[in-house]
């Protein structure tokens, strides 16, 4: 039975470092499956105009496609080239909740994420996605600096 690691991507440096670290872990474990996930922040409780609603399905497809081609596919390709067993995923939702839900569904052993790179007042008040994940996750979480 191989171990499963969920890796959170953010399209930036901290996601990249999470991937690197997860790769190292996988090697140390003597082989593990990585699932790299990009979550598009989205709330079902936001307010939209009728026009936005009518176009929502189309926009969602476009968002998924953009995330797929720009972030997930390159990461998957690079990992495969290094001989790592890997799958990619793009999801909409609350970042921390979604990563945790996927981890539960996939029966993953661990979640690896980068430390939040963004700073600012909003994060001070509401907490970053990483902090939320660490507090609520149902599997161990590794935060990569």
């Amino acid at each position: 039975m191989t171990a499963k690691l969920i890796v959170g991507l953010d399209g930036g440096g901290s996601g990249g470092r999470a991937v690197e670290y997860a790769k190292k872990l996988a090697k140390l474990m003597g082989g593990a499956e990585l699932i790299v996930v990009y979550v598009i922040e989205w709330s079902p409780f936001s307010f939209q105009t009728p026009e936005e609603n009518a176009e929502r399905h189309k926009r969602r497809e476009l968002e998924i496609e953009a995330a797929e081609t720009r972030v997930v596919s390159p990461a998957v390709k690079a990992l495969k080239a290094d001989g790592v067993k890997v799958r990619g995923m793009v999801k909409h939702g609350h970042v921390a909740e979604t990563l945790d839900r996927i981890a539960t569904e996939e029966k993953a052993d661990q979640i690896v994420v980068g430390r939040t790179s963004e700073a600012g007042i909003a994060n001070r008040i509401f907490g970053s996605s990483t902090a939320n994940l660490v507090m609520h996750a149902s599997v161990p979480v590794t935060v990569v600096a």
Binding site: F45, Q48, P50, N53, R56, K91, H92, G93, R101
Partner: peptide, 25 residues
Amino acid sequence: KGDYSDPNDAGEVSHFQALATALSG
């Protein structure tokens, strides 16, 4: 509240959003 919404449909127009949009009209 989204109790019956499939998480795989996240990112699509939710019941809440449709209601909120109609209400603002």
